[in-house]
């Protein structure tokens, strides 16, 4: 059984790594959760973002960070639902519930 993997994203320049690692982990049958915070939330506006939401088991962003990046919290990015506009508790959930972890 493949291990589960949590990915914590703070730097939008790492988007290609987020996609690359998620694709590779899903190909191994892993459960993958991704949480974006601070400027990492800019990734939610990328054309490929909905594809990540389809691929990963759980994707959420920090709503407070998203707002600080200049977006309206009511402007929920394609691929997410309102409840996935989360808090830092999502990062805590990754650390507690997932076997492996990488920050990007």
């Amino acid at each position: 059984m493949a291990k589960s993997l949590g990915i914590f994203v703070t730097n939008p320049d790492n988007w290609r790594h987020v996609m690359g690692i998620t694709k590779a982990a899903k190909a191994k049958g892993s459960k993958v959760k991704v949480f974006f915070t601070w400027s990492g939330t800019k990734c939610a506006k990328l054309d490929e973002f909905p594809a990540l939401c389809e691929l990963a088991d759980d994707v959420s962003i920090c709503a407070d960070s998203y707002k600080k990046m200049g977006y309206e919290v009511t402007d929920v990015p394609a691929g997410l639902t309102e409840k996935e506009m989360g808090t830092q508790a999502q990062h805590g959930a990754i650390l507690e519930d997932y076997e492996c972890y990488i920050n990007l």
Binding site: D64, T87, Q88, G92
Partner: peptide, 10 residues
């Protein structure tokens, strides 16, 4: 620092 506080409350 806010992220650190977020984990402390967890």
């Amino acid at each position: 620092m806010r992220s650190a506080l977020g984990l402390a409350v967890e």
